[in-house]
C-alpha cells in the first residue's frame, strides 16, 4: 500500500517565478491498484511520479509505503521497491550495454553490487530468455546486442521488463523488510518472523533427514530434497511484503500507435499476472479508461477526480472531457487542445 500525505512541491522556490507543481496532494493506493492518471500539461503528473520515486524531494509531506515513511530514502535506495519506465525510450536503458547486461542490472536491484559475483551467470541466461519471450518481440535472439541498436518500442518493452523483474530478495532482506514495513510493534514483528523462519527451517531439516535416512537411491533423494527446498522457499516468500510498485510515466507517448498498443497490452498482462500496484500516466483518454481499476484526474497539482470500480467501467471519453472542462476552467483552452482526440 502506498499513501501520499499532504505532498507539496514548488519549483523556483522563493523567486518571482515560483510555481506550485503539487499542491497538498493526498492519495492512497491499495495493494494491487492499477491507477491511470490524466491531466493537462503542468498538472503535476510527472512531478508526482518523480517525487514518489525520489528523483527529487518533496517540500512537504510524507510518502508511506506499507505505513512506512520512505521520503528520506535516496532514489537508488527506493528503487528496490519501485520499478520505473520513462517517457523517453532513451532514458530507461543503458544503450552501450547489451540486452542481457541491462536485464542483469535490473535483476540485481535492491542487492549490493558485489565485486565477487559476475554481472550475470550462465544459469541466469535461461531465465532471461524466458522472460524476453513473453514480450513476443524476438529480443531473446538479440541477448548479446547493444540496446542502442533496438527500436524505441523494443526498448520500452525491455524497460518494462526491467522494471518488473527483480531477483528474489535474500531471506535476510525478506525478514528485514517484514519488520520495517510492519504496521505495529516492530519488536513483536521481529520475534514473529524469526519464529516463523526457524520453524520453517526446522521442518525442512527434519524432513530432509527423513529423506536421507530412507532407502531411496541417490537420484531420488536429490529430487526429493530439491522439492523440499522449493516448499521451504515458497513458505518463506509469503513474508515478502515488497513487490515492486510500477511507475509508468507516459511510457508509450514516444511510440507509434501500433507499438504503443502492443506495449500497453504487455503492461496490462504483466501487471495482472503479478498483481502489481501500478501508477500509469497517460495522455490518451481511451487508454486511461481501458486500463486499470481506478482513474485519477489531476489539475494544478491536485487530484480533482477519482473514479474507481464499476463507475470507471462506465466512463466514456465525453464524460471525461466534460469533467475536465468543469475542473479546469482557466486553462481549458490549452488542455482541450491536447485532449481533443
Amino acid at each position: 500500500m502506498i499513501e501520499l500525505r499532504n505532498i507539496v512541491k514548488r519549483f523556483n522556490n522563493g523567486t518571482a517565478s515560483e510555481t506550485v507543481a503539487i499542491d497538498h496532494l493526498n492519495l492512497t493506493l491499495q495493494e494491487g491498484d492499477f491507477i491511470t492518471v490524466i491531466g493537462g500539461n503542468g498538472a503535476g503528473k510527472s512531478t508526482l511520479i518523480n517525487i514518489i520515486a525520489g528523483s527529487f524531494p518533496a517540500d512537504e509531506g510524507m510518502i508511506l509505503l506499507n505505513n512506512n515513511d520512505v521520503s528520506k530514502m535516496h532514489e537508488y535506495q527506493r528503487a528496490q521497491y519501485f520499478g520505473r519506465v520513462f517517457q523517453d525510450p532513451m532514458v530507461g536503458t543503458a544503450t552501450d550495454m547489451t540486452v542481457i547486461e541491462n536485464l542483469a542490472l535490473a535483476y540485481g536491484r535492491g542487492k549490493t553490487r558485489s565485486l565477487f559475483r559476475w554481472s550475470y551467470r550462465p544459469s541466469d541466461v535461461e531465465f532471461f530468455v524466458n522472460e524476453l519471450k513473453t514480450l513476443g518481440l524476438g529480443l531473446e535472439d538479440r541477448l548479446y546486442q547493444k540496446v542502442g541498436l533496438l527500436s524505441g518500442g523494443q526498448r520500452q518493452a525491455l524497460t518494462l521488463l526491467m522494471a518488473t523483474i527483480r531477483s528474489e530478495p535474500s531471506y535476510n532482506k525478506v525478514k528485514r523488510d517484514y519488520v520495517r514495513f510492519f504496521d505495529g510493534d516492530k519488536k513483536l514483528a521481529k520475534q514473529e518472523i524469526d519464529a516463523a523462519f526457524k520453524q520453517a527451517f526446522d521442518e525442512f531439516k527434519a524432513s530432509k533427514k527423513e529423506v536421507l535416512e530412507s532407502g531411496l537411491n541417490k537420484e531420488e533423494k536429490k529430487a526429493k530434497i530439491k522439492e523440499l527446498k522449493n516448499v521451504l522457499d515458497k513458505k518463506l516468500r509469503q513474508y515478502d511484503v515488497t513487490k515492486p510498485v510500477l511507475l509508468l510515466d507516459e511510457h508509450t507517448a514516444a511510440l507509434d500507435p501500433k507499438t504503443a498498443e502492443k506495449v500497453l497490452e504487455t503492461t496490462d498482462r504483466i501487471v495482472k499476472e503479478n498483481n502489481l500496484t501500478t501508477i500509469m500516466i497517460t495522455h490518451n483518454m481511451k487508454d486511461a479508461i481501458k486500463y486499470g481499476n481506478r482513474l485519477i484526474m489531476m489539475s494544478k497539482g491536485k487530484v480533482v477526480a477519482d473514479i474507481a470500480g464499476e463507475e470507471k467501467k462506465k466512463l466514456t471519453i465525453e464524460t471525461l472531457l466534460d469533467m475536465f472542462v468543469t475542473n479546469s476552467k482557466n486553462d481549458m483552452l490549452a488542455d482541450s487542445a491536447i485532449f481533443g482526440d
Binding site: A53, S55, H74, E75, Y76, Q77, A79, Q80, F82, R84, F86, V91, G92, T93, A94, T95, D96, M97, E101, A104, L105, A106, G108, R109, G110, K111, R113, S114, L115, F116, R117, W118, S119, M162, A163
Partner: peptide
Amino acid sequence: VFFGTELGASIRATGNNQKMSRAQGINT
C-alpha cells in the same frame, strides 16, 4: 574481470545512463 562483475557492470551503467542507473538501484 572487474568490469564483468556486478560492481564493474554497475560502474559502466553509471557512466552510460545515470538516471537509469539510479532507477535500477545503483548508487551512482
